[in-house]
């Protein structure tokens, strides 16, 4: 079946299988920031934004995004033009193996789009479903709080 969607600001018309996951579709379309971890919605590595809300791409059926707006990390920034959240993760030393980082950033993006002055507790709640096996989370929380500070200071584009 064919569906229309908006992926990272661009209109796409894609063939999907009825039981295919959004994770599978996005990987197929080259969105390699969307990682397959658990494939059961538990680890958060495949988190993307669906109409501005963070969801697990592995638990969304691809046909469900018909006519909807999907944003992956590729839609926020890249190596040449990183998003302030990506810069904050580097600045705070919040990246080790990097597998969880795209999911963490997408969750943080949703949080900061609604609340640019979160408490550390609110940040911890936001990332509570995203697993990181390397950092111990402290620097990830620091990075999100740093990005929030930059946003309040008008440093986000």
């Amino acid at each position: 079946m064919k569906i229309y969607l908006e992926l990272n600001g661009k209109q796409r018309y894609e063939e999907v299988a009825p039981g295919e996951s959004l994770l599978s579709l996005l990987r197929r379309l080259g969105m390699k920031s969307v990682k397959q971890g658990c494939a059961t919605g538990d680890c958060g590595a495949c988190t993307v934004l669906l109409d501005g809300r963070a969801v697990r791409a592995c638990t969304v059926f691809a046909p469900q995004v018909r006519g909807r707006r999907v944003t992956t990390l590729e839609g926020l920034g890249d190596v040449d033009d990183p998003h302030p959240l990506q810069e904050a993760f580097v600045e705070a030393g919040a990246v080790q193996c990097g597998f969880c980082t795209p999911g963490m950033i997408m969750v943080a993006y949703e949080l900061l789009s609604r609340n640019d002055n979160p408490t550390p507790e609110e940040v911890r709640e936001a990332i509570s479903g995203n697993l990181c096996r390397c950092t111990g989370y402290v620097k990830i929380v620091d990075a999100i709080l740093l990005a929030a500070k930059w946003k309040r200071e008008g440093k986000w584009r």
């Binding site: 063939e15 299988a17 009825p18 039981g19 197929r28 018909r66």
Partner: peptide
């Protein structure tokens, strides 16, 4: 069926637990 779609279906088998889905309806 295009090669690309063929790849997609292979991935479905890898990724999804619901292997028998043949139709998706928007009521």
């Amino acid at each position: 069926m295009s090669y690309r779609l063929g790849c997609g279906i292979v991935r479905v088998v890898i990724n999804m637990r619901l292997k028998g889905i043949r139709r998706f309806h928007y009521a």
